[in-house]
Amino acid sequence: MSIVQRMAPDTPLLQVDGLTKRYGARIGCADVSFDLWPGEVLGIVGESGSGKSTLLSCLAGHQPTDAGRIRFDGRDVLAMSETERRRLARTDWAYVHQNPRDGLRMGVSAGGNVGERLMAVGARNYGDIRGKALDWLGRVEIAADRIDDRPRAFSGGMQQRLQIARNLVTGPRLVFMDEPTGGLDVSVQARLLDLLRGLVRDLGLSVIIVTHDLAVVRLLADRLMVMKSGRVVEQGLTDQVLDDPQHAYTQLLVSSVLQV
């Protein structure tokens, strides 16, 4: 996609319509609809159990959906074969897990971790793959001499940055992030957020980020969706929702943060 198209898109990148997921009689998420435009960052917030993580894993195709429609770039994602969906997952999509151990190969070097997606889509020049891996390690502020070390030897913050590099190396158009700063120290969180903001801006990424931390969305998200008991209770521009919450639950959520 060219820069011009990114600046002036005429169709949303992702269209979600009436998405519903049940666990037996319990609702995972119900009747969720939204559009995500190219270059847009959408934050999904809510307390734990609000259905935000369920929604994210349904969107990414990690679990089956009971009703609704997901269109990516005009294509019906739920009607795709698993082959197509997995191909999408390793080219146009990326998924950053909360726990870097779920998103990294802990037994493979940092360079191998970053290079895997390149090799999966056919890169066959060792020098090029290594060059790209070095470039990406630099972008996420990991020293070049750590390229042959395994992630086990890395701190939590480094592991998370490595996971981000591994996901972004193939230039995905849509990135799913599940609490990417969860489980990190406050100072480490701040550095990671700063880095993410830079990457999102520089690469013009479209991102769906799930978090319970309003500070994260305040910094990263253009738009916000607030979930409670599996349903979207409010959505709008981030500043608008945070500064002038309409729904009682959002008001509670915002005020509880302010009290901290």
Binding site: V108, G112, E116
Partner: peptide
């Protein structure tokens, strides 16, 4: 999905 196969070869060369 054969990316992993090349990761193994990559690791060999790196090491």
């Amino acid at each position: 999905e054969y990316g992993l196969m090349h990761v193994k070869l990559y690791e060999d060369i790196a090491r």
